[in-house]
Amino acid sequence: MYEILEQIHAFISQPWPWWMGGITIGTTLFLLLYFGKDFGLSANLRTMCAADGAGDYADFFDFDWKKQGWNLMVALGAMFGGYIAANYFGGDGMAHVSQATVDTLNNIAEENLLTISTVPLIPGKDVIHNNIPAFWNLYSWGSLFTLRGLIIIVGGGFLIGFGARYAGGCTSGHAISGLADLQIPSLVAVIGFFTGGLIMTWLILPHILRIAF
């Protein structure tokens, strides 16, 4: 019995192929629609603002946020999912990116810091990966006290929150739910996501990453 469990554990712990995305996203979407809800995680940010009393400042937040409790539970569940996956089914904890990406990462760092077998899943030193080169140590509290980390964490968060509500949805609301419903506005939003992403990745991000302080 124990051996079988160990085999199941090893099976789940290996990196998942891309088509598992269809199964994961499909199951999530199916269950939420079945429960009579819509899939869209960034709506939680609006709910959290409203719960903190933002309704006093803008009527955009003046709505019955308690009815959105179910979506907060989805986010809470996602947190647990991340915790269990990272700590018990983490596998080798590596991002299995292509050699071309490793070259790109080393080019940005202007140093050969990574090889194909040493790209960590998460660029943060605090928790799981102790061997990550300092240059890629982005998601840690220490990083927050550098200009580079501050722009990436605080600036990135602000853009995500602002853009998601402005566009009326995020990757789950537009790219999944919207496209699945064949909504042209969602297609325009997704084209916007990729336009912004390409501008940032190719023109801006390399300069931000090279800020040394």
Partner: peptide, 28 residues
């Protein structure tokens, strides 16, 4: 406009609005 701004944030941190909860929960 909103889509482009969101995309810039997505690429800047490498995280979108669902993934931030997953990462928060996993210990970061």
């Amino acid at each position: 406009l909103g889509g482009t701004i969101f995309g810039m944030g997505w690429a800047l941190t490498g995280v979108c609005s669902g993934m931030m909860f997953v990462l928060m929960g996993s210990g970061y």
